[in-house]
């Protein structure tokens, strides 16, 4: 039985700003880390591995430096790591990213039982890659898994967070899932284990290794969305203090609540 966990390297801070004159992203540093939501995915995948003796592979699409997150995943207990890296994959939006990951899964692990993703990333922040991957792989998708039960080598019980309901589902493999941070605190790899990881054990996959190697299906060419521009959000006056009559205080309260759609005035109810 094979399990794949998808992880991404992200900038270590979300505090990016835009230069107002050039419209260019300013970074405070170039430090990167593993997408924190992917630690929960790894943790859950390890739990399933434990009871099924499955082989657990971590995959990531990114530059050469993304090997660092694969090493981290291996230090946590993943059996091996795959770096998906090729100029042809550059400029990928969610559709192209998920298609690339799906192509890798079907090319390297034809008999995969479960693909495990994080809930979202802290950079692109779309929370869409997992579900789109499932569609490409023609597998069912279960989002925001916060618990597992009845784990066997043919099926698994999953508790999915649906907001006002928790739904227990039973799923026959194969399937793609995303993992909620509500599953519990994940482990962090120890420096010692990390230093023991051998980078040469990481396999690198390029376009030529995939069953579909038409470059038009990947990267910018395979991406329907285009980011036209990026800019900093405008904050309406961060702190205001209304120091006047009670009437003015109420006017201000109603104005703030209605402009934020939390109150609709007289017809509210």
């Amino acid at each position: 039985m094979k399990i794949i966990v998808c992880i991404k390297q992200v900038p270590s801070t979300q505090k990016v700003a835009v230069d107002p004159t050039t419209g260019v992203l300013i970074r405070s540093g170039i430090d990167t880390k593993m997408n924190p939501y992917d630690l929960y995915a790894i943790d859950l995948a390890l739990q399933i591995k434990k009871s099924t003796k499955a082989q657990l592979t971590a995959i990531t699409m990114g530059p050469d430096s993304a090997k660092a997150v694969l090493k981290e995943a291996m230090a946590l207990g993943c059996d091996d790591g795959v770096l998906i890296s090729d100029r042809a994959f550059a400029g990928a939006d969610v559709l192209a990213t998920s298609y690339t990951l799906a192509s890798v899964v079907s090319s390297i692990a034809k008999d995969v039982a479960l693909v495990v993703c994080g809930k979202q990333t802290t950079d692109g922040d779309t929370a869409q890659v997992g579900a789109e991957m499932a569609a490409h792989l023609k597998m069912p998708f279960v989002g925001l898994v916060m618990g597992i039960h009845d784990v066997t080598t043919t099926s698994i019980g999953l508790t999915s967070d649906q907001g006002n309901q928790l739904v227990d589902l039973n799923v026959n493999y194969p399937a793609v899932i995303s993992v909620s941070e509500k599953v519990g605190q994940p482990d962090l790899p120890s420096y010692f284990r990390l230093s023991q990881m051998d980078e040469t054990k990481i396999k690198v996959v390029t376009l030529q290794d995939l069953d579909d190697h038409d470059p038009n299906h990947y990267g910018l060419s395979g991406s329907p969305t285009q980011v036209e521009k990026i800019f900093e959000p405008t904050h309406d006056n961060d702190h205001v203090l209304i120091h006047g009559s009670t009437k003015e205080a109420m006017d201000h309260f109603v104005e703030v609540m209605t402009s934020n759609h939390y109150f609709r005035g007289k017809d509210h109810g």
Binding site: V94, T126, Q128, G130, E132, A135, F141, Q162, G163, P224
Partner: peptide, 23 residues
């Protein structure tokens, strides 16, 4: 963009092979 909508939307978008902008 509710918990369910955030799973449903990408599942449909990928079937169409069209773009989807989140949130």
């Amino acid at each position: 963009a509710t918990l369910n909508g955030r799973s449903l939307a990408p599942s449909i978008a990928a079937r169409f092979k069209t773009g989807l902008t989140a949130d």
